[in-house]
């Protein structure tokens, strides 16, 4: 009960931010009636999805301060569980999605245990390495379609399998996940684990002196992040109806996830959402514009890279970090 009250309690935010977020939520709810074309709809869905990913990453990467660059493997686990179970045994989404999350949780504990013996760059590289290992396995694993990927059977409009012919349904579907994610994160940042993680980030030795098992806390946060991301992955499976290791497990996806949160402002509730709101449309519109200009191939990624370098060099706390500096409070 207390947790639910905490999740809905935004009272420590300045009034203007609460109003702003309220208006933004209304906009999100009304969006399908604003007469956007299907491209705009797709961008919006992508934005909500990446916000969800970013919020998940934020637990371990932002609040916990661990440079985690292997989230794509959990997108893959979530997506593949849904896809494989639907293709092989015709299992509905609402059974396979929770299973995928459970597998992601189990796997995250399994590799989180050795992973969090590491710190700093050792850790960052190791997260990349584990993600690449899993991608390699999926590329060579015929049961899951290997490098060719896997195509989901078309089921028409069905809530059981979460397949729709109209994007509006998908939109509200991911919006529900997004809002649940925001509420969860609003609880998380004020939870015992949330505070403990920030203490670990500031000074791990001091955190331990306060009775905090730093490694265990990080493993828990990592598992939460993985579950978040796996949920997003399960959405990709039913939304795209086709997945392959290249699209759901690639290193670039891991980078994008971390980047969105960093750009917007890690360790803040709004940060990942702001990051996704900037990067996803940029990515989409730039991508579609560049699609017509073959000679400019690669420019989109050069722009992201320039943004990353700029943020890292001059404002490591991201866009929201600038706002927080002015308002003098972190939330």
């Amino acid at each position: 009960m207390g947790a639910i009250r905490e999740a809905f309690d935004f009272s420590d935010f300045p009034l203007v931010e609460r109003i702003g977020f309220g208006i933004f939520c209304l906009f999100l709810l009304a969006f399908p009636w604003l007469g956007m074309d299907s491209f705009g709809m797709a961008v919006m869905i992508q934005f909500l999805l990446f916000s969800l990913f970013g919020m998940g990453w934020n637990t371990i990467g932002g609040y916990g301060g661990q440079v985690e660059l292997g989230k794509a493997q959990y997108v893959g686990i979530g997506a593949y569980t849904v896809a494989v179970l639907m293709v092989r045994w015709d299992i509905p989404y609402w059974f396979s999605m929770p299973l995928g999350v459970l597998i992601a949780l189990g796997y995250s504990f399994l590799i989180g245990y050795p992973l969090f013996r590491l710190k700093g760059h050792y850790f960052a590289i190791a997260t990349i390495a584990t993600s690449l290992v899993l991608q390699d396995i999926f590329i060579n694993w015929n049961f899951v379609g290997a490098a060719k990927g896997i195509e989901l059977p078309i089921k028409g409009n069905t809530f059981l399998y979460m397949q729709f012919t109209n994007d509006t349904y998908y939109y509200y579907f991911i919006l529900a996940y997004f809002l649940a994610g925001v509420l969860y994160m609003n609880w998380f940042r004020k939870s015992k684990l949330g505070y403990q993680l920030r203490m670990i980030k500031i000074d791990e030795e001091a955190a331990e002196s306060l009775g905090i098992d730093a490694r265990w806390c990080k493993i828990k946060a990592y598992a939460i992040a993985s579950a978040f991301v796996a949920v997003g992955g399960s959405f990709i499976a039913v939304y795209n109806l086709y997945i392959d290791p290249e699209s759901v497990m690639h290193l670039e996806l891991s980078i994008m996830i971390a980047l969105m949160a960093m750009l917007g402002g890690a360790a803040s509730l709004w940060g990942p959402i702001i990051g996704a709101a900037i990067l996803v449309p940029l990515d989409r519109y730039l991508g579609s514009w560049l699609g017509g200009h073959k000679e400019l191939m690669g420019v989109d990624f050069m722009i992201y890279a320039a943004i990353i370098m700029f943020i890292a060099a001059f404002e490591p706390r991201g866009i929201w970090g600038i706002v927080e500096r002015y308002r003098g409070r972190r939330t």
Binding site: K192, Y195, Q196, R198, D203, A206, L210, A267
Partner: peptide
């Protein structure tokens, strides 16, 4: 003290109190 603009003085002490306290309030 490794000072960082991440937690307030109160929050630092709260982290200590969390050792035997689950509830934030």
């Amino acid at each position: 003290m490794r000072a960082a603009g991440e937690l307030t003085a109160l929050e630092h002490v709260m982290v200590g109190a969390f050792l035997h306290q689950e509830d934030r309030v």
